[in-house]
């Protein structure tokens, strides 16, 4: 599905990712953890194609193709979905209208028939239930005045509607209450399938109780310094990052 090799990424001339290696196979769930500022969002953004994030070396293969040369919309149409850490507000654009446009844009690009109004409504109702969102939000401007939790649910709704092949969740669990957290986790679990993969960025092991990852990676200073299974997340929860930082820094100073 996704093969990242020695990827270095700079933002405004500053190198943030300093050589990432990661392979995600179909159906796998990878959790990415790491202290603030270690480069987690940077990784998510570069995969989604955000322009300021410039890959200076290394490669990213997605479904056998060079991902880095694709435009943002092409990546989305090819099944890459990023649930944003901070979804932006778009005044005057109703959420319903936005959802319809995106679903049909992606369907069209994938050679599927576009949905008519009735089919669209049915699909939306269905998925709205799945993420426990208030239907009234559909008539409001996209993300405008949404509470933190509402924004995150709206991201999950979009994910459910767009049915990506590779979903990247950037701290979707932050700022959610326990119930909302369960709903987000349920949504992800329902969408888990043999041909869909997830990269889940989180600070909390709690989410990983609900979404059991196949791998856990720790990102520190732009590198993956440790990988393991879900027990690594528990260890981090108990011991914090200090031991990993020490390990990594001593390796670096060798």
């Amino acid at each position: 599905m996704l093969i990242i090799k020695d990827l270095k990424v700079s933002v405004e001339e500053k190198e943030i990712l300093q050589g990432i290696n990661l392979e995600v196979k179909p159906g796998e769930v990878h959790a990415i953890m790491g202290p603030n500022g270690s480069g987690k969002s940077t990784l998510a953004n570069v995969l989604a194609g955000r322009e300021e994030y410039v890959a200076t070396s290394g490669s990213v293969l997605y479904q056998g193709e060079n991902l880095l040369e694709k435009e943002v919309d092409e990546r989305a149409q090819a099944g890459i979905f990023l649930a944003f850490q901070y979804p932006v507000e778009i005044p005057g654009v109703s959420t319903a209208n936005f959802l319809k446009s995106t679903v049909n844009a992606v369907r069209k690009a994938q050679g599927k028939e576009e949905l008519n109004a009735v089919q669209m409504l049915r699909l939306m109702r269905d998925k709205i239930k799945m993420v426990g969102m208030d239907e009234k939000l559909l008539q409001r401007s996209l993300n405008e005045g949404f509470s933190g939790g509402e924004k995150k649910r709206s991201e999950m709704l979009q994910m459910a509607l767009l049915e990506p092949r590779l979903a990247i969740l950037d701290e979707t669990d932050s700022g959610l209450d326990i119930d909302a957290l369960r709903i987000v986790a349920d949504a992800v679990n329902q969408l888990r399938s043999a041909d869909r993969s997830f990269i889940i960025v989180t600070h909390y092991q709690r989410l990983l109780n609900y979404i059991v990852p196949d791998y856990v990676h720790v990102l520190y200073k732009g590198r993956i310094v440790k990988s393991g299974d879900k027990s690594l997340a528990m260890q981090l929860e108990e011991q914090g990052y200090d031991w990993i930082k020490e390990e990594a820094d001593s390796v670096a100073s060798l």
């Binding site: 943002v72 990546r75 932006v88 778009i90």
Partner: peptide, 22 residues
């Protein structure tokens, strides 16, 4: 970036933002 990440072309994304504004 947000709109294009959801699969809209740049042109459609611009139109959507501008229409929302108006």
């Amino acid at each position: 970036f947000y709109l294009m990440q959801r699969g809209l072309s740049e042109e459609d994304a611009v139109n959507m933002i501008v229409n929302g504004y108006c």
